[in-house]
Design a protein around this nucleic acid. Structure first.
Lengths: 198, 198
DNA sequence: GCTAGTCTGACACTCAGTTTCATCTTTGAC
DNA sequence: GTCAAAGATGAAACTGAGTGTCAGACTAGC
């Protein structure tokens, strides 16, 4: 559990609830009308808050959608630290991704519609790339710590972290393209197998 | 040589020249004043054209900077197709990147200031991610063709293409962070070595 | 109840990016 | 050379994102 999660006041909980509600309203509206056909004013009105308030919770329209994945970077990094130290990096990365895979499996229909929305919207695609780009240093650092030596993330761990995230992404892409027909875990395994660093 | 390059009218050449000039003016201004402190009006005025014209050449401020890399995706994909078919994918990818590495080496000072500008500007970082994301399918397709079979890019070739692009990126990141002290080729080799798919 | 910190809505503002239209230049055909 | 078509430019209006400010309402702790 992170520091932010430990020190959680009543206000923080209320804020998180409002945030989740706004995100849900936004997602539904985007799905129904299309991302670029919905203005922030529309979102605010649909959610029953002012434009100002909406923009206080989410800096951009994109963030309202992608906030669903906000915690994933830290979650995977934590899972990575929890892997046995004798495990090789690539296997540890694959297993650490089980954390998010479990969440995906829990609501695969929701994930599918989310991924469709993201893939069909250039701005969301771009923002998602940026979001995942931010996870790379988290994974790289966790990987470096696991190695015991050299806490400042080296080039090698960054590359492995980036590649693992690509695998996740590409597996999700193929899964979405198949309308969820293929098994996501299998696709991820296949992606990891394509790149088998020693 | 691509089709677009073959059928090149006088107008196209003039357009390309204007485009290059605008990009240069924009780059200089961004470097001097900072990306977000320069408006499109400023750029247009500095270049002696109207706002409309500037926006016709570059859809966004970001594109004015990153147009410098526009051709790289196709170039690497072409280089990939030119590699001997007996070469393994990973080696072919590494060698195909020599195409862009040669261009970087030719003006490493320019590249360094460009990379610094990009890294220091969130919007440019994001747009660059998007740009490179667009290269992935190009490389994946070239890789698939090389393999002879299954022209529709499979998951495996996508993963390798993505990983190779990450290597390029991360090598550039470290090179930039070292102010160009390290040797870029060495960093790229190191990145490729960290991920050695069979 | 009072006070301090926080949340909210209203409003004004800047700027990015789109679209439309009128004008001017270039090109190619004759 | 002339002329018509196509392309390039500039001007202007417009939508909407995102920022900043401010005043009022709410809440918690004392």
């Amino acid at each position: 559990m992170t520091r932010a999660a430990r020190t959680r006041s009543t206000r923080d909980i209320a804020r998180a609830a409002v945030r989740a509600e706004l995100a849900q309203v936004a997602f539904d509206l985007f799905r129904r009308e299309g991302f670029e056909n919905v203005t922030i004013d529309d979102l605010a009105q649909a959610a029953g808050v002012s434009r100002s308030t909406f923009l206080r919770y989410f800096g951009t329209k994109e963030d309202a959608v992608l906030s669903a994945f906000d915690a994933h970077g830290d979650q995977v990094a934590d899972a990575l630290r929890a892997r046995p130290s004798e495990e090789d990096d690539w296997t540890a990365l694959r297993r650490a991704l089980d954390t998010v895979m479990a969440q995906y499996r829990q609501d695969s229909a929701g994930l599918l519609s989310m991924m469709r929305l993201v893939r069909d919207t250039r701005a969301l695609c771009a923002r998602q790339l940026e979001q995942q780009h931010g996870w790379r240093p988290l994974l790289a650092e966790a990987l470096a710590e696991r190695g015991g030596l050299s806490v400042p993330a080296t080039l090698a761990v960054s590359v492995k972290a980036a590649a693992a995230l690509d695998c996740l992404n590409i597996a999700l892409d193929h899964w979405t393209a198949s309308d969820g027909e293929h098994d996501l875990e299998d696709l991820l395994d296949e992606a990891f197998a394509a790149l088998n660093p020693r």
